[in-house]
């Protein structure tokens, strides 16, 4: 950035900022990923361990069985809608927190529920939603018949939104807090309606935060399965289940590794394509 910087200064700055993090990611993320890639090219031995022959057979298996495509489609579908619901819930909340006098306190209030254990929170939802549970007690008090809230797809969405809300709100808050509100006034001065003013002056400023939050919600939501298992009655198989099963009960690490490589490539390719198509608008940097 600084034009006066010598190559040596530039290298030193890079070494201090990017260096440690990049080294960490290389050792603990890149190397293990390569291990997974290698494993995905192996086979399963008769005792259930990794063994030669090498080949692409695990990938062939995945792409030739329609069952797996069904699972991928279902995972993307559920992940997408859960993320949309999370955005609807979290976007206004980020604005409210950022504008509040005690914003630090409110921000902590968002994460405190997550200091309790995940499993305990999920069980609390089950207790609320079950047939003889609290929500149905309220419903029947109004003289209505009890609803089948659990196990259900509704319960899965509810708990997924619940679980990932902070993943959306926290990055979004960091961006909203920085909004330059004078741009909104300028838009008003130019005769914009409130809706238009928001859309053209405020919304673009939230994009980096929204995009980060969206991805931090969407990507894990596609890969998660414990929520679907517990609240959906274990009837819904998602890609996360498939991978988990291969590494545990099915004892086929090679195939599990291949499926996780496919999941990884799918997401990274999606991001790359997005960046490519957005290039001219400068939005590729969001990725």
């Amino acid at each position: 950035m600084n034009e006066a910087a010598t190559p040596w200064q530039k290298a030193r700055r890079l070494l201090v900022t990017v260096g440690p993090g990049a080294l960490w990611l290389t050792v603990f993320v890149l190397v293990p990923s390569l291990l997974i890639l290698l494993a995905s090219l192996l086979s399963r031995s008769s005792t259930g361990s990794l063994a030669p022959p090498w080949g692409l057979h695990n990938y062939v298996r995945f792409f030739t069985e329609p069952l797996f495509w069904e699972i991928v489609g279902r995972s993307l579908w559920i992940g997408w809608w859960a993320t949309v619901l999370t955005v609807l819930m979290g976007y206004p909340l980020a604005f409210y927190i950022a504008a509040h006098r005690y914003k630090q306190v409110l921000l902590l209030l968002v994460v405190i529920p997550f200091f309790t254990n995940f499993l305990i929170r999920v069980y609390a939802w089950i207790i609320l939603l079950q047939r003889e549970g609290a929500v149905n007690a309220v419903i029947t008090a109004f003289g209505l018949p009890p609803a089948d809230l659990f196990p259900s797809t509704f319960a899965v969405y509810l708990a997924t939104v619940y679980t990932f809300l902070p993943f959306l709100v926290l990055p979004l808050y960091a961006a909203v807090e920085r909004i330059d509100w004078s741009q909104l006034e300028a838009a008003y001065d130019l005769g914009a309606t409130p809706v238009r003013g928001f859309w053209e002056a405020i919304f673009p400023q939230t994009l980096p935060g929204l995009f980060a939050g969206f991805l931090l919600t969407f990507i894990p939501a596609v890969g998660t399965f414990v929520i679907a298992d517990l609240l959906g009655g274990g009837k819904i198989t998602l890609i996360g289940n498939l991978i988990q099963q291969q590494f545990t009960s099915a004892q086929n690490w090679a195939f599990g590794a291949a499926v996780s490589m496919i999941l990884m490539v799918m997401v990274l390719l999606g991001l790359w394509l997005y960046a490519r198509t957005q290039g001219e608008r400068g939005l590729d940097e969001l990725v």
Binding site: V29, P32, S33, L216, I219, P220, M264, V267, V287
Partner: peptide, 24 residues
């Protein structure tokens, strides 16, 4: 490359991350 590498820990399912780190 680094920008994309950042997404890997977010994408990789927990069980795969756990086992690969243990192997490492």
């Amino acid at each position: 490359f680094l920008r994309y590498l950042l997404y890997v820990p977010v994408v990789v399912p927990d069980v795969v991350m756990g086992i690969s780190l243990l192997l490492l």
